[in-house]
Design a protein around this nucleic acid. Sequence first.
DNA 1: CATAAATTTGACCCTTGAGTCAAATTTATT
DNA 2: AATAAATTTGACTCAAGGGTCAAATTTATG
Lengths: 200, 200
Amino acid sequence: MQTALKDPFDRNKQFSAKRRAVILAAGQAFRRQGYHNTSMTEIAAGLGLTKPALYYYLRNKEEVLYECHLMAYDAMDEILSVKHQGASALDKLEALYIDFVKMLTGSGVSLLTDVNSLGDDNKSDVLERRGKIERKIIRLVKDGQKDGSIRAGDARLHVFFFMGALNWLNAWYDASGRLKGEDIAAHFALQMRAGISVYK
Amino acid sequence: MQTALKDPFDRNKQFSAKRRAVILAAGQAFRRQGYHNTSMTEIAAGLGLTKPALYYYLRNKEEVLYECHLMAYDAMDEILSVKHQGASALDKLEALYIDFVKMLTGSGVSLLTDVNSLGDDNKSDVLERRGKIERKIIRLVKDGQKDGSIRAGDARLHVFFFMGALNWLNAWYDASGRLKGEDIAAHFALQMRAGISVYK
DNA sequence: CATAAATTTGACCCTTGAGTCAAATTTATT
DNA sequence: AATAAATTTGACTCAAGGGTCAAATTTATG
């Protein structure tokens, strides 16, 4: 595998790897302290760098936030693209949800909610991405209502309810805490599922 | 009722009423745009005032945010203090949850999540208040697990899950939208309840 | 080794918005 | 009406932090 061995020496790869590291680190900081409570200098220092070095990888602070959002949505899209097995739509949704929680607790990716600190264009982009994801999940819920696995009711509200748990997760989850991502995933999946499955 | 009739002429009452109005208006703005994306000048303008007028009612911007938090927690405490009827703890929890949603959609009070923009002291206060509320709810869930109305499992996770829906609500709810607060309350209560009630 | 490209930095500028203050204006009291 | 208290404002100061730039340093390539 010539190419793979050369990777570490590939300038472009190094560049994007570092760029990605910057965004991930920034995302963690944003998640914990908030976008406006985190200075570029601080982010740089956290990586053993100095502020101007960051600007070698990114145009401006807003772009960092923007990329954080995209990174989270990429990860979610990735999960959504996997053909989850399961007899019912509810089963698929559960598998999906578990992966979401694992991703949010396990990978360094942060699901941020601060969309208003973005300029109009980036904000539209991000909301559009989020909307697409929501719509896919809503669609899945509706499928479940058709195949009889999911209770009737406003599908959008069904989704907003359990997606709220995910967003809130970012606010309180601490990787160093006693709760393991896997356990949270299992618990949340059960609660999500019970919340919308048909009465038995 | 002499005192009641005199109320509108009572300077202190006018003062606190205006102060409260400022905080409520600010809270709405913070909720929609975020604390740091909302300037004092903007808040003032929204009330037909000018910035220095705000500083007649409040020491500084942080105090506004602090009072917003307190106002939400006061409202929640108020709801928690009411002796909710219901045979099981689950019934009580449901009544509670409905009131929470109604309060958040109906009154002008906003449940903010930005705690990191507060100084250490205020932040501790707010977290303590939040902790107290959470603990009460967790206690109620544990009661439900004892009286057999609520499923076993980490009570804290049970609570974090459905409280996430409330926090997220603040992000997407639009009073001018088609969804009425009452409907959301009914839906959310059902979903919350189903999510943690014992299997039947 | 010499040269070029890729990274990183110290020192700087500049805008934004929080907060202040003395003065003006409105409202109540004698 | 005159005086005092309560509100409100125009005009200002100031610090924080985003962003820039030319120069230094490191790393790769002929």
